[in-house]
Amino acid sequence: MAKGFFTDTTLCIGCKACEVACKQWNQLPADGYKLTGMSYDNTVGLGATTWRHVAFIEQLGGQGNVNGHQASEQQGATAIGANIRRNTTISVDSVIGANGSDGNGRYAAVLEAPRLVDDTTGGFLGQNRWLMMSDVCKHCANAGCLEACPTGAIIRNEFGDVYVQPDICNGCGYCTIACPFGVIDIQQDDGRAWKCTLCYDRQKDGLEPACAKACPTQSIQFGEVDELRERAYARVGMLHERGVTDAYLYGADENTSVGNLNAFFLLVDQPQVYNLPEKPHVPQAQVIPAYVATAITGLALGAATIAAFLLGGRRG
């Protein structure tokens, strides 16, 4: 019955309310005041004092943006790890149906699908997208940070989420490099590791997390992960029906060592575009082979040493 997030990037308006609400609720300091030139993103990524982060990706005129980021032209099967088709502007065209009321005798627009045409505003910017995505700790099924933590500071709490107990963490920093998504980080002046708590404190009081609460468009939806997953699939279906066939879920149906993410996303471009790995690995998947290989080497080298002692003396 894990609780988590479904973050639907097609509903994000990039208002950053989530980012601010998180900072306010958790009383996190600002990260500094520097213009990055990365579109409207000046907080750059998740870190010890930024637990929600809104990414901005300009893909206008099919040219990629001027900041050095290139929107991949040949997605589909050709680009690295791409699993989606390129570039449909969420451009819903033609006129919607005239078919009256919603059954309650009330006025209501009725959805009529699918109505997507190729972007006819092409005379100007061509195919225009300005993608926005609110990133957060994924609360992984197999969480690298949790597995790595040598103090047991990181636990899975009663809501199924990955939580760092600040009174136990000793700032070893190992979790920060064990997270396959670059989420958890050490706060330098405090010396402990921090990340999204999935508003453990609020959840305990039956409140929804601050970021979800603040999101004006329900781009961030909080709830029971299973229920969210169902809703998210329905959403994918609806978007496909409308012609946004790029839409897919990231983190809901994972076939990776990390497994499903309690905070999963609906994306419309390949994961790398959003600074997410195509196929994340939980580092601990390597732990047994690494131990075994080391042990075998140990055996071999031990044997060689023994041999050296047994045989090597002869030379003298």
């Binding site: 819903v92 065209d93 627009a109 699908a113």
Partner: peptide, 20 residues
């Protein structure tokens, strides 16, 4: 619900990004 969103603006903004 299927409405068409039109944004007329000198700049492509966060509103335009969500417009049809």
């Amino acid at each position: 619900r299927g409405a068409k969103i039109i944004h007329v603006d000198p700049r492509f903004t966060r509103t335009s990004a969500n417009a049809d």
